[in-house]
Write a protein that binds this DNA or RNA. Structure first.
Lengths: 347, 347
DNA sequence: TTGAAAGCGATACCAT
DNA sequence: ATGGTATCGCTTTCAA
């Protein structure tokens, strides 16, 4: 016999019916121990492997979880993925992963493609899906998680934190430390990065409004905060951080005394570049980052950064997805997992 | 109509037969333009999405590529993955990804699981599969790639480079630079790391044999090279690099004047720790790494490291897999993609 | 270029 | 606890 063995082959060898073999595979406890043993032996002898396509077709359960991330190269999403994989284990799910390269259009195409696998659920990053994508998902009738970021109008389940609030809080931290010429370094301005920038702007706006109310007239220059924003659509890297630091220094004519980098890669690059410019940190220049990568804590001085529970987010996404898939609950309101500012020597 | 539309629904709406719809989906050029248009409209109207399980079952083509990597958290495999994803695009394949946590046993289980999806091909990392896994793969009758590392007895296709040779070459570089008390820092001693260590040992052994032949009697102490090996099964991290540096310094009683780290994470950690110990680099201590991560080139001094074409390996794996799947060629001998030593300030 | 009929391999449902 | 039978949705094969 050359072709791959199927259920029937196993059944014949074991002297039972096909359906009994099927049961051994799915609900072993619903089969008498004696039959089960015979079947298990037959399976081993034949090297039988169940045909997933047939199983999925007949049972209408694909055993697949679809996940779309914006980038494979960004370690941040890896940590989320690890959470997803760890949580998926007990559920007998296979993960099909797509990388949409930060593009909502690519994401839309991927969603269409992945939906053909009839996944049990779908995990997306961010909340900026195209209208058509949202429609696809609504029709699909499967639970969907939008991860990493919060929105008032989630497609379904939403788990994340406010990048606006985090950006604002970090900027307030710099203001509280006395910095008044603060630069924002941004790369690959995806929605979350833009929210961080918006938070940055709001913090400074609030600060200037408070410390220098128009009704009171002029105040000492030092009280007012001067923002410098340098962004690029290039994708983020350590090297780019150094280049952006030079750019902001040029733009501010050397006035800039603190930079808030939209992520830790940029912050590391800024730190390395600042050293070569003989800037003392944090005396001459403060550096703040985002994501709290391992390296940020270990360089000298450590980089102040925003931490968030990425692994846990991934886990929770799967957990809620599976809860919903099993019909336990139908509505979850957006879940804010929060963030925390890790203050280190760089500020 | 509540249930999801199927081929028949589309066919009825378009006024053609189901098979014609199927053809529009798979070989659009084999259908008259007129019918095709009608079908495409019907598909759009109904929001039809093809049932992958049924398609796979009927056609005996799963459209799935299975990939197993040892770790999601190691950025090195991410770059390989990116190569895989980039190459997969034109082939209409979905990637199912498994993480075996560096364990051959987990890998074996994953292989069994993933084979049930009847993937068109399977990409593995390394060459240390269990016997049972090899048997499974041989029976599966699909092309298999063992990636990253070379072996004399590949299961099928083999693409990689010699970690032994790379480890040896890097050590020879340190010897050539005049270092004679060389430490090896190793974490999570997976097979490739062990080969690097073996190369390290061989280089030093060769050196000592050459520069101090037994027949010539004693020579100046400085000519002989003293190796110090510190390894741990803990998984690698920047922080661990610092700890291992301290360990090797303790073991060598401060004699160690160079460390070869089994990867760049450790090397970065060693660099940061060395700075805090007020060691001048490379005068007091040379540091070499492996993998050539971006940060290694940008810290000061830059870390000498071993670069390899990871992205390209991923791409080539898919390319050869698809070539083989389409029956073009049946045998490939192992493909050595090589490595190169990036010499920087740290040595 | 198009269609009819016969599977693909497993599971659900209903008996026994 | 076990088995018979219909069925899932699509593609293959063959014929027109």
């Amino acid at each position: 016999m050359n072709r791959k063995p199927n259920l029937k082959d196993v059944a014949e060898l074991a002297g039972v019916s096909a359906i009994t073999v099927s049961r051994v595979l799915t609900h072993p406890d619903k089969v008498a121990a004696k039959s089960r043993l015979k079947v298990e032996q037959a399976i081993a002898t034949l090297g039988y492997i169940r045909n997933h396509a047939a199983s999925a077709l007949a049972s209408n359960r694909s055993g697949v979880l679809a996940v779309i991330i914006p980038s494979l190269s960004n370690i941040v999403f890896n940590e989320v993925l690890q959470g997803i994989y760890s949580a998926v284990k007990p559920h007998q799910l296979q993960v099909i992963l797509g990388d949409c390269h930060y593009s909502p259009l690519e994401e839309e195409k991927l969603i269409a493609t992945l939906l053909s696998q009839a996944p049990e659920g779908l995990i997306l990053t961010g909340t900026d899906q195209t209208d058509y994508a949202r429609k696809l998902l609504q029709n699909a009738g499967i639970p969907v998680v939008q991860l990493m970021e919060l929105t008032d109008h989630p497609i379904d389940i939403n788990i994340g934190f406010s990048h606006f609030a985090a950006g604002k809080a970090m900027t307030e931290h710099l203001l509280a430390r006395g910095y008044r010429h603060i630069g924002f370094l941004g790369a690959r301005m995806d929605p979350r990065t833009q929210h961080r920038l918006a938070g940055f702007r709001k913090a400074i706006e609030d600060w200037n409004a408070t410390s220098r109310p128009e009704s009171l007239g002029a105040e000492p220059q030092s009280a007012r905060c001067e923002p410098y924003v340098v962004t690029t659509s290039q994708s983020s890297s350590i090297k780019l951080g150094g280049q952006l630091l030079q750019a902001v220094m040029a733009e501010s004519q050397g006035q800039c005394d603190a930079v808030f980098c939209c992520n830790d890669d940029l912050a590391l690059g800024a730190l390395f570049a600042a050293r070569q410019m003989n800037l003392r940190i944090p005396a001459d220049l403060a550096i703040a980052g985002f994501n709290d990568l391992e390296a940020s804590a270990l360089v000298d001085p450590g980089i102040t950064s925003v931490a968030s529970p990425r692994f846990a987010m991934g886990q929770q996404a799967v957990d809620l997805l599976m809860q919903k898939a099993s019909g336990a609950q139908t509505e979850f309101s957006p879940i804010d997992v929060g963030y925390s500012i890790m203050v280190r020597g760089s500020t």
